[in-house]
Simulated assay, not measured.
Amino acid sequence: MLIPKKWIIIIVIVMCVMLVSFIQSSQDSNEVDMTIAQEETTVLEDDSQVEQGDVQKEWLVDIKGAINIPGVYHMKEGDRVVDVIETAGGLTDDADSYQVNLAQLVYDEMVIVVPFQQENGEVSSVDMTIDQDKIRINHASVDELTVLPGIGNAKAQTIIDYRDEHGPFQSPEDLLNISGIGEKTLERIRDDIMVP
């Protein structure tokens, strides 16, 4: 028995419609899969950035003098002298806290010497930090840097901008990377600076 021509046409049309529907649903499914994959990638990237951002520098700080438990302590970036004192058991009764900048940010290899009060009420001559006569270029302000020979306000600001952009100086020679600071300037200030 022969199938009428009109039925053949209807069957072909139905098959074409089904084929087009199948292709469209496959494309939609692929787009959904791609969107999900992109979202997962974004989430993974965000997580890795958070993990990397959570990593904090750890610094060793030596605290001594009028302190209950003197010693070397592991501190984090952003900690201050008051945090080190608390970690070290606090000040002794005869400590002179007025001679200590409790708000100062700590840095790696920092030495804090808390002075004792003298019996006559005078403060001992122990300084809070060693090498206090040197400028710590990784922590110095514009005013502190301008004390150095040949360093004016503009150069001091350039040093701070470079430090903010590239991170702490690793050696005095890193100053040579700054425009306007050459070998002669470095030699003039070398004995007056400290890294870190």
Score class of each variant (00 low, 15 high):
N153R: 13
V111H: 07
G150K: 07
T158G: 01
E86K: 14
H139R: 11
M128W: 02
E144C: 06
I189F: 05
M1L: 08
A154K: 14
Q104T: 11
V195M: 06
V142M: 10
A140W: 08
A103S: 15
S141Y: 02
D143C: 01
E109W: 00
E109D: 12
V111F: 03
D93R: 07
I135Q: 05
M34L: 12
A103K: 11
M128Q: 07
N138R: 05
I135L: 04
D79T: 02
D47M: 14
D46I: 11
G65S: 03
Q38I: 05
S29M: 05
N177D: 10
E165G: 03
E86W: 08
S25Q: 13
T41N: 14
Q132G: 02
E187S: 14
I135M: 07
D79Q: 07
E119C: 01
E183L: 12
D164Q: 10
Q170T: 08
I137F: 00
F116A: 10
I189D: 00
D161K: 06
L175S: 06
A154T: 11
W59M: 14
D47C: 01
F169Q: 05
P149G: 05
E187N: 14
V43S: 09
K5S: 13
R80F: 07
G182W: 09
V20Q: 06
V12A: 15
T87W: 00
P168V: 07
D161L: 03
A103C: 02
Q132A: 10
I10T: 11
V100C: 06
Q132H: 04
D192S: 12
T92H: 03
A95K: 00
S124P: 00
D28Q: 09
H74M: 05
E165R: 13
F116Q: 14
V12Q: 11
V50L: 15
I130R: 04
I160G: 02
D83V: 06
Y73H: 04
T146P: 05
I181P: 00
Q104L: 15
K76T: 10
I137W: 00
V12S: 15
N138E: 07
Q117I: 15
S29V: 01
I151H: 06
P70A: 09
Q118L: 13
V147N: 08
T158S: 15
I130Q: 02
E173A: 14
G182N: 12
H166M: 12
A103R: 12
E165C: 05
T41Y: 15
I67V: 15
V147C: 00
R188S: 13
D164S: 09
E119L: 09
Q99W: 02
K57D: 13
D47S: 12
D143G: 12
I13F: 14
R190V: 08
P172D: 05
L19W: 09
T146G: 07
G167R: 06
V82P: 00
I67K: 09
T92W: 02
I135N: 04
E51I: 13
S141N: 03
V82W: 01
H74C: 00
